[in-house]
């Protein structure tokens, strides 16, 4: 494969998760509505936050558990904790 840029979902496909059936991330959509900058979208390395029409949608399954979203959210709308029961990302080569 050449060194051409890959899509995030193809990059993430190389990682391994045991996904927790209970989300470890929740977003307070009321607070989120009032945020103009939404830095989570650009700064979440796993692309967990995206815009759909005019609202933020998030998925927790592909989270790499860095905690960036929790820190950058200006309105503290993101509640982020660690997945339970050893679930979530499983790093082998990092």
């Amino acid at each position: 494969m050449s060194a051409a840029e890959q899509r995030l979902e193809d990059i993430l496909n190389n990682d391994i998760w045991d996904v927790d059936p209970n989300p470890h991330i929740t977003v307070d959509s009321e607070k989120c509505k009032n945020c103009n900058t939404k830095p989570c979208i650009r700064l979440c390395p796993a692309g967990c936050y995206t815009m759909s029409e005019k609202t933020l949608v998030f998925s927790y399954e592909g989270c790499v558990e860095c905690g960036t979203c929790r820190v950058v959210c200006p309105l503290e709308a993101i509640h982020w904790e660690f997945p339970k029961s050893g679930r979530g990302i499983y790093f082998r080569f990092s």
Binding site: M1, N13, N14, I16, D18, R92, F93
Partner: peptide
């Protein structure tokens, strides 16, 4: 093996099993 992701080496066409943890 935790096969939520089954990866194929694009160069060899074989399954990548290295370091795949078991569940």
């Amino acid at each position: 093996p935790n096969t939520n992701t089954v990866n194929v080496d694009p160069n060899t066409g074989t399954l990548v099993r290295e370091g795949v943890p078991s569940v």
